[in-house]
Amino acid sequence: MDVPSHLQSEVKQLVSVHGRDRTALLPVLRGLNKSHSYLSEAAMLCVSKELGVPRAEVYGVATFYSFFSVEPRGKYVIRLCRTISCAMNGTYHPVVAALIEELGVAFGETTADGVFTLEQTACIGLCDQAPAMLVNDDVHVKLTKESVRAILGEYRRKAAAGEKVKSA
């Protein structure tokens, strides 16, 4: 399979920062996962070649960690904590309902516009401020159904603004 040249240069750039040995595999995958929201077949092949790590092992690592995905995902990945302190909080179920209703997708799915992927995650260390979620790397705590709607609105605006910048 042919690897697009822009992807090649992106991988080369990451390798120049993180090194060309096996220990660089996670940081390089992380960089790609961040910029594309997921790890494509072409991206993994390119990493395999650059780092000299067998392709099957790149895939094995990519599928082990929950922050990596080998399936396309939205621009913003929402990870709602579902571990006990969050899950038993009184506003947890309303928050779940608001997310599903607002996005129109179930957990594990991506919105049709490609803006959001909704996921559940294990404890994110914000139990004292439950319920909590991450949107990409951002933290959102003490969620309510109202706050969730507002938060999603923010990201939608950001996504739309990003689109405008791109097309301008």
């Binding site: 993994m44 392709r55 099957a56 092992e57 790149v58 895939y59 094995g60 599928t63 082990f64």
Partner: peptide
């Protein structure tokens, strides 16, 4: 390679 994690672990090709 092993693929996935936890209950989803299996053996897979690339």
């Amino acid at each position: 390679s092993p693929e996935g994690r936890g209950e989803h672990t299996d053996i897979a090709t690339f």
